[in-house]
Computed example of a mutant assay.
Amino acid sequence: MLAVASMTASVSAQTVSESKTFDNFYVGINGGVATKTTGHKWMSDLNPNAGVRVGRYFTPVFGLAVEGNAYFSNKPWASTGTFVRAVNTQLLATINFSNWFGGYQGEPRMFEVSAVYGLGWAHTFRATGKHAMNSRYADRYFMNKAYEPANRMTSKVGIDFQFNLGKEKEWQVYVEPSINYAFLGQAAADDGNYIFSARYGFKSYTNNDQPAYNIHNSFVQLNAGIIYKFKNSNGTHNFTIVVPRDQAEIDALNAQINELRNRKPEVITKEVVKEVAAPVKQINVSDLVFVTFAQGKFDLTKEAKAALNGVKEGSHVQIVGTASPEGGAEINQRLSENRANVVADYLKTRGVIVDEAVGKGVQGNTSNRLAVVYVR
């Protein structure tokens, strides 16, 4: 698991945007049926279950989740006489094969395949009287005696077939077949397979309390679930790709900034912030902060935040967002508005007073993926 985490982190680190501490979390519910891997009757020995899963994606490939499930029926095991027969809580590693082998495209695919693997702990509740033992051994050993609850270490291996839904792919529905191992049991005396089966739900197949990690101590499970991915600091519910700028784009941007610096203040006022309310003082280049964005994106880079950090607390600002000529007019207008808004939101958190934040779409014929901040 550590090797996979290191590999997937290095694979994704240079392609996706920075992930904050509380980004990429999700919560969901699931339910389905389970039965013993061996010694069962298909379709008649099914144990229904329901559970909750909470997790986080660290990269588009690797994540961790905590899952807890309750099992409601005693089939195909001996009855415990309780409504909830057992609970199983596990820490799961998730590996998205679609993103690992196919690459992450900027948003989740409609259909993806992931693997889950993890370890946990299961608790079988107390059984009393005739439920403590199968009928063959009840009178001989445990009639009218309370049985102590059983605890066993568990392990889960499964495949998730995932469907990402919603306008921003914020919902995910999945179907998960899995096999769940229960091991670290206690061997019993006197034909212990039967006694052990009543207490733990499985035949022991152990030797002096050593782990028994095999299909005889396991059950298969088929669950379906739905999860909701919380909104991230980048404004979406998923990872976004950082598009590196080429040198030609950087040179064009520098030329545009130099041109603005060499022009008279009144020209800058007219062409860059022409619809902004009349300033209370003459505009100088030193009053302008230029924030640049990657193509098609509106998340703030570290460099952009460093530039905005220079705006003093309590200052009044007006913000104009723009977009480059690529793409349709509607998309560029919305993108320019998002750029202005994300700059405004960041400055507000620093105590800056935002008088106006507007998007102007495409301004000119060259690359101008900017948000211009006028500090009054």
Rank of each mutant, 00 (worst) to 15 (best):
P244H: 07
T240W: 00
N234K: 07
I257A: 09
Q256T: 13
T236V: 10
I241T: 15
Q256A: 12
Q247T: 12
Q256F: 10
D246S: 06
N238M: 06
P244T: 14
R245F: 02
I241G: 03
A248I: 09
G235A: 06
I257P: 01
I250T: 08
K229N: 09
E249H: 12
I257N: 05
I250D: 05
I250A: 05
G235N: 01
A255H: 07
G235V: 03
E249D: 12
K231Y: 00
A255I: 01
I241Q: 09
L253M: 14
P244A: 13
T240K: 08
N254M: 03
K229S: 08
H237T: 09
K231P: 00
N232F: 07
N232L: 06
N238I: 04
S233V: 11
K229Y: 01
V243D: 14
S233R: 10
N254R: 12
D251H: 07
I257T: 07
H237P: 02
H237S: 00
N238F: 11
A248H: 09
K229C: 01
T236Q: 15
A252G: 10
I250H: 00
K231S: 06
F230Q: 06
Q256I: 06
S233L: 02
I250R: 11
R245H: 06
T240E: 11
N234P: 05
Y228V: 03
I241K: 15
S233F: 01
I241M: 13
I241W: 03
V243A: 15
D251S: 11
D251L: 10
P244Y: 10
L253P: 00
R245G: 01
L253E: 11
H237K: 05
D251V: 14
I241L: 14
A248M: 09
A252F: 01
F239N: 04
K231N: 02
F230P: 00
G235Y: 01
